[in-house]
Write a protein that binds this DNA or RNA. Structure first.
Lengths: 137, 137, 137, 137
DNA sequence: GTGGTCTAGACCACC
DNA sequence: GTGGTCTAGACCACG
């Protein structure tokens, strides 16, 4: 699990960490129960302050993605968190609009966008355990 | 050109303005050469400080989306900014991966994501020149 | 005497006009006693407000570059204005620093800058009546 | 890095700051990666509003000269912005013509202009890495 | 009326 | 301590 952080990015560093970990979980690159690096090791590896990594872990734990076991380490939760479905839906729709607009600004047409999305799906799912269909609940 | 701002949103107000304007340009709802509201008028309309709107306009100008003519107003640029096509493509692909991951985290399947994207396209394209008729629902 | 104005330029339009006229005088492209276009004609030609051209002419007259003769028109003065030599010198030196810095930022070296300056001199002086050496006074 | 601002100058304060910083970068007095003063400290030092300094920093960042890292500070970029070389050349040549015209208006001759340019170079290069020794006079 | 600049504060998030 | 955002004014220059 390699992370890439960019100190100049407008997204805070702890958010960059959170995003990459949740994406890895979403896609199956990080599996349920898998152990994460300690926040101290990770901070050394990324050359950032330990508190910054800890903040990311704390927030991820508060959101239900990971859990810490005193003395043993930090692990990916078995049960992925379920947020408010309505709110969730709104955020996804907004993300879709943003993504589309960005693509349109680049001069792409709708069919091309779909193609890119399909490629991204293939790339993300590659190497990951074949996802099981989940209820949209 | 109606804007909606949400002071509670984590996205800064001036960014919300920028996003909506660039999306409107991307989609053709704002046409080349079209005049924007003065930053004072818009600030009154949105009930926010004039400087906040001005900051949005300033950044959009720095990015090449709009241009101002002292004493006359602010206008949509005729030549939208063009980045390096390769770099452009990379950013879009990265955005696609982020979008997909977010959707998967919410428990959606690929086919559902495509459906959401199609809806977003319809919504964005509504009101734009070459639009397909649909109820604004 | 063709003028080029750019409404999007950060330099005010009336200043753009002033600059081009004074440069033309400096270089001999506009000769002493020569008649300028009326401010109304020029404003039509440039597609700008007559008041804007008039402001440029007024300022140029106040500075001593041109003079208007009621009912006859506007003419280039025979005696070029002499500003405070010290202040003048300071401004030139500041302009030299700015020009040099700009060139250095572009990656040029000093000798290349001098070469460009020589070319510019040739280009400016070409077609103009050979300038007579003036006392620096 | 000492800055001098003149509130009476027609050039806005934030532009004066920008000019001096870009000149320092151009000439090597500010090196890649070097940390700038915080905009608050600098504003105190210059006895101006913090927002004024911040505006200068923001514009310099938009132009690619410096970059900020939240919580850490503002730094000179390692890769200075590179424009289209041809376009670049055009701008420099135009600047050369402007500079020359201004000097000629002041009654200077070409050889005098070159002398002033040489002095400006010495002054700019003073304090920079590969400088030639001279009295700061 | 339009944008351009500046002030003197304030609160928040990040490291 | 650092930058990020926002406010509510003010004065000026331009067209």
């Amino acid at each position: 699990m390699e992370l890439i952080i960019n100190p100049a990015d407008e997204l805070p560093i702890y958010r960059q960490i959170m995003r990459q970990i949740t994406e890895a979980i979403a896609v199956g690159r990080l599996k349920s129960g898998e152990k994460l690096k300690s926040h101290r090791d990770l901070s050394e590896e990324l050359v950032i302050a330990p508190l910054t990594v800890k903040k990311a872990y704390d927030e991820l734990e508060a959101l239900g993605f990971i859990e810490t076991q005193r003395g043993r380490g930090t692990f990916v939760c078995t049960a992925p968190p379920r947020l408010d479905p309505v709110e969730q839906r709104d955020k996804i729709q907004q993300a879709a609009r943003s993504f589309l607009s960005q693509a349109y600004l680049a001069g792409l047409r709708y069919t091309e966008v779909v193609k890119i999305l399909k490629d991204a799906d293939r790339e993300l799912t590659a190497g990951a355990p074949s996802r099981k269909e989940k209820e949209t609940a």
